[in-house]
Amino acid sequence: MAALSDFINLYLLPGLVVGCIYALGAIGISLLFGILRFAHFAHGDMMTLGAYLAIIFTASWGWSPYAALPVAVIGAAIVALGLDRAFYKPFRRAPGIVSVIASFGVMLMLRSAIQLIWGVDVKTYDIGIRFPMEFGLLKIAPRQVTIVLVTAALVVALHLFLTRTRLGKAMRAVSDDADLARVSGINVEQVIRWTWIIGAGLAAAGGVFIGIQTKVHPNMGWDLLLPLFAAAVLGGIGRPYGAVAGGLAIGLAQELATYRWFSDEPFVDPGYKPAVAFSVMVVMLIWRPTGLFKGRS
């Protein structure tokens, strides 16, 4: 029983939590690809930005990170709108790959700005130690419950937005066929603005969750990029629901791969977790590049 308890508490639950965080980042990558037709390489750094924006409030005024989360989300959305206006809007009519190069530049600028403002040291939110709740075999930390529940709530909200609101429907229309959407009178620029707000907002929430779960450092966005892309590709790029499934799958795969499956040693050395995400991505690219949920090719 101890082995099962270990498996659930040390591998399955952390995998689920990491998966939620990846899902929040991958949704943005997938939505942006659907609407703007380019892979946003600065998306990991949007998550870092969210995590650091929250630090302003936790460090200076002693806010709880959960209270700082909405402010960080709004802040990241505003920054994303500014970045879009300055660095992506000029390339709307250019091939998508030019925007990818521009996102390289944004990535360098975001990261160095974060390093400049907040320094390079690892930071935490000072939540204090909360003892995990025990339910028989399960040992669940309150923050794990919060992260999973808030992520679920955000995904449901996104679903309602995409299916019930005019703007959400317009967003799906632009994603399916931008030209057709434009001639049917949809304000494409408005749709793009909301894509940035949602994508950057969810990324910022994911970034704050990383800070709540572990710690914050300026390079974490770079380390996130590979699992985020893997999640988006797995779910079928351009498909936000696929990105959620992909994020959960990649998070679980990374954690479960380090379990002692066949011997007393971890099956995959924990240092190689990013390689697990990469392997999944490569297998998908060979076997089914459109992803499990038939995304864009």
Partner: peptide
């Protein structure tokens, strides 16, 4: 874009 993602990986 896919080649970019794969090569960075």
């Amino acid at each position: 874009d896919y080649l970019a993602m794969a090569s960075i990986g």
